[in-house]
Amino acid sequence: IGRVDTLPWPASFGLGRPATQAEIALLDIDIRPDGKGLPAGSGTATAGKAIFTLKCAACHGTDGGGGPGGTLVTSGAASGKRAEKTIGNYWPYATTVFDYIRRAMPFNQPGSLTNEEVYNLTAFLLNASHIINDKAVINAQTLPKVVMPAKNLFLPDDRRGGPEIR
């Protein structure tokens, strides 16, 4: 949905500079649900568990079961109303696990993990949440294919103003 251009403005103000592919690559760390953005590398639950114990368990508990940084691992659908909202019941896309850990964790050393570490941690958390088995190898091809329990929980906003309360 671009826009027909009717402004009496120059086509370009000539400000800024073209971005190079190299500098885009450096910043372009996001991962889309279709896997776009996933780097080379791979991980498994076993390797992830070791890293988790070292770098994450202090805040999220052994195996992610809960701590000062919050609970990461529970299972069951959201219909179990009292269950905490976690990866296993409330994250609709597995790619988000990789994306979020890489950009924001560990909380006290954000941006310090290698891609390999992030793959391993992702595999560990998906396995601990009973979404993949403990032999599964997580990489750019397999991660987007993981079907999450929460996949179909979400509906778009239907609030539109006007008299109706939604």
């Binding site: 996001d30 979400f154 778009p156 906003d157």
Partner: peptide
């Protein structure tokens, strides 16, 4: 397409009553 970041999936979403598709649904975006 949207990126489905942690904030717009696991965080800034809320339970709603969906009369057609039953309970347990969440509002996103």
């Amino acid at each position: 397409q949207p990126y489905m970041t942690r904030e717009e999936t696991s965080k800034y979403t809320e339970p709603i009553k969906d009369t057609e598709r039953g309970p347990g649904k969440f509002r996103q975006f």
